[in-house]
Amino acid sequence: MRAWVKIFCTGLGLWVAAVVVTAVTSNPNLVPTVVLLGSFLVPVTFVAWAYGRGHAAGVTVELLFQSFIVGGVLGVLGASLLEGWLLRPSVWVYLGVGFIEEGVKLAALMFVARRMTRRTGRDGLVLGATVGFGFAAFESAGYAFNALFAGDGLSLSQLVETEVLRGLLAPVGHGLWTAIVGGVLFGRGFRISGAVLGAYAGVAVLHALWDSMSAIAIAITLVLTGRPWQFQALRLGQVPEVTTAQVHLYTVLNWAGLLLVSLVALAWLLDVSRRVRYGPPRGLA
């Protein structure tokens, strides 16, 4: 059995056991175990999968661990500071989030890989994915912790639902986007070139589209099926009631949009992987 399969199966079993015991005993001391296992399971599994098939000659297990922990923590801390300082509510806020979060992950990747003496594009793909999944793991832990607090007390069900949803979406999020930039960065000699800036801008836009897909789906739904009284309510600053058909259309549009963004990113990653597969090793700049 492959290592990543063992990691996933073992971690999933432990997480399910932690959820069941927490539900049976109502012991709040077990909540951190549920949060951490659920948030880290899928990211760690995919890092193991990428390392196992990436053939990244310059990537050691120690560097992989540093990239996941140090890169992930630096990423979420940097993003939190910059988003708090620079972003204000506007129609451009999602684009700002995309550029900030992809920028801090790129900076974190360059930091953890700065002492490598031999770099290939394959190394960049694996380390980029690792930094991205580290970011995703710590971010998911924060979302799961917030989901725990419901209006009438602590809600284990909301925590579990949040972790399941974010776990299912994790493979086509942060890890995928940073892997693309990492492959381009390492394939271009570890220098900030036009190609690297283009990749950074591209994944930032994909990130923004992903985050804003719910709002986009709502807007399209209203344009296609909106009723006069709904637009009147919006003009008055009120939230209009919606029909059952509109709820179904919104759901289809939202998930279709997320699927499209994911397919574009996956196709891009495959193209980058193909381009760097036989690239020569890159030394220190």
Score class of each variant (00 low, 15 high):
54 G>V: 05
150 A>D: 10
41 L>P: 02
187 G>F: 06
148 L>K: 05
121 G>T: 08
170 A>K: 06
219 A>C: 09
33 T>G: 14
168 L>F: 12
146 N>L: 14
256 A>E: 11
151 G>A: 05
253 L>V: 11
158 Q>T: 05
243 T>C: 05
275 R>G: 00
3 A>N: 15
19 V>P: 00
92 W>R: 08
143 Y>E: 08
109 L>D: 04
83 E>N: 13
128 G>H: 01
185 L>D: 03
121 G>K: 01
34 V>E: 10
67 S>I: 11
120 T>M: 01
56 A>P: 02
34 V>R: 09
188 R>C: 07
119 R>V: 15
192 I>M: 06
75 G>F: 00
118 R>M: 14
158 Q>K: 09
85 W>E: 09
47 V>L: 09
54 G>K: 01
62 E>I: 13
230 Q>V: 01
49 W>F: 15
284 L>H: 12
135 F>S: 06
211 D>F: 02
50 A>H: 03
206 L>P: 06
139 E>A: 11
148 L>R: 00
255 W>S: 12
33 T>F: 13
47 V>N: 01
273 S>D: 00
212 S>K: 13
23 A>G: 11
93 V>Y: 03
182 G>M: 01
236 L>K: 04
216 I>M: 13
284 L>W: 14
151 G>C: 03
150 A>M: 05
138 F>S: 10
233 A>E: 06
65 F>M: 15
99 F>A: 11
28 P>I: 13
14 L>S: 06
49 W>R: 15
128 G>F: 02
111 F>E: 03
258 L>W: 12
172 V>S: 12
244 T>N: 10
20 V>S: 11
180 I>D: 00
236 L>C: 03
31 V>F: 14
62 E>V: 14
186 F>S: 05
140 S>Y: 01
98 G>T: 10
62 E>N: 15
12 L>R: 08
212 S>F: 13
74 L>D: 07
219 A>W: 09
46 F>V: 01
228 P>F: 05
5 V>K: 15
145 F>C: 13
79 A>C: 07
245 A>C: 04
163 E>Q: 13
152 D>V: 09
9 C>V: 15
166 R>N: 09
197 L>E: 08
104 V>E: 00
199 A>Y: 04
2 R>C: 13
135 F>C: 08
255 W>E: 13
39 S>N: 11
10 T>Y: 14
98 G>S: 10
74 L>G: 07
62 E>M: 13
104 V>N: 07
231 F>Y: 05
194 G>A: 00
276 V>L: 04
103 G>Y: 08
42 V>K: 07
191 R>I: 09
95 L>W: 12
96 G>V: 06
161 E>Y: 14
244 T>Q: 10
42 V>I: 14
110 M>T: 10
258 L>I: 14
171 P>A: 10
230 Q>H: 01
27 N>G: 13
